[in-house]
């Protein structure tokens, strides 16, 4: 096992010091019809974000239906790159639904329907020619309950690179991913052990390492710490702020302190009479918590409802 890797700090872009996933320009171009680097900055970002930075992903008038039930309606916001955006709101307001819409995970549920656009470097991820598999390779996901595969720790992390036809040094990807997920020191001597033998917090960091290993640009996290003890929760939060140097993170959380502590931007959702979730307010996290624009936001973050 090579152990000479240094902690990388810059974005992984094929020329960095991390072994890269086989995202050749040809395949990426075919799949999404546009290279990441070739994307034009999009006009009309939110007033609160740096207008010069192109958003990592940009949702336009998104509605998601389960059958005839509309779970979220007319959602528009952009997600700044290399930052943590948190989605907060009462249970059932459609946070998970919205998050899963970003990498087309909802496609896997029969009967879901999507309206609107999710723009990723100017490409609509819901355009007809777009393959959801290609989308998920670029936008990874960490789930609420840790869900490691019943395989070894090594094989868990190596799964993504393997199925994506990775041709480099797998050992190095596994090590660097585990390092980035702050798990390496705890598991380096037992990589052959089952991922299920780890504690809940370790399992969740393994799942983060597994997501990182395919080198996505964006990582979606759906209440990643809700099943964990306070110490593991703090570890995950520290990890997130480390990860945002290299990745864009969108996190759903029901924990107000967590949103306040860990995120740079916050989207507050609520649901209307029709139970469809909508955005009440989206701002810098400090503004949401200290200077909200809406009374409803203030009531929610101060714990008066939800």
């Amino acid at each position: 096992m090579p152990s000479t890797l240094t902690e990388p700090t810059d974005r992984v872009d094929g020329s960095g010091n991390l072994p890269t996933a086989p995202r050749t320009p040809a395949t990426a171009g075919v799949a999404l019809r546009m290279e990441r680097t070739a994307a034009q900055p999009l006009a009309g970002g939110d007033a609160d974000t740096d207008p010069a930075a192109e958003p990592a992903v940009d949702l336009r008038d998104v509605s998601v239906y389960y059958g005839s039930f509309r779970a979220v309606k007319n959602i528009t916001f952009d997600v700044p790159p290399n930052a943590i955006t948190s989605l907060i709101g009462p249970s059932g307001s459609g946070k998970s639904t919205l998050l899963r819409a970003v990498n087309r995970m909802n496609d896997l549920i029969p009967g879901t329907r999507f309206e609107g656009e999710v723009l990723y470097h100017g490409e609509n991820l819901y355009a007809e020619q777009v393959d959801p598999v290609e989308v998920r390779r670029r936008i990874g996901m960490v789930f609420q309950k840790p869900n490691p595969f019943p395989k070894s720790i090594y094989d868990n992390v190596a799964f993504g690179p393997r199925i994506n036809g990775f041709r480099g040094k797998l050992d190095e990807v596994v090590e660097s991913s585990l390092r980035r997920a702050a798990l390496w020191d705890e598991v380096k001597d037992k990589l052959k052990q089952s991922g299920l033998a780890l504690s809940g917090g370790q399992q969740q960091r393994l799942c983060i390492a597994r997501a990182i290993a395919v080198q996505p640009e964006i990582i979606l996290m759906d209440e990643p710490a809700s099943a964990l003890d306070p110490r593991s929760t703090l570890q995950i939060e520290e990890l997130m702020s480390e990860l945002k140097k290299n990745y864009t993170i969108i996190i759903v959380t029901h924990n107000m302190q967590q949103a306040a502590r860990a995120s740079d931007y916050t989207v507050f959702m609520n649901m209307g009479e029709d139970r469809a979730g909508y955005i009440v307010e989206r701002s810098r996290t400090t503004d949401i918590f200290t200077n909200p624009k809406h009374q409803m936001t203030e009531d929610y973050v101060s714990g008066r409802f939800g």
Partner: peptide, 10 residues
């Protein structure tokens, strides 16, 4: 959840 994890990795 295992299937979702797999699909989520592309």
């Amino acid at each position: 959840a295992l299937r979702e994890a797999s699909y989520g990795l592309g």
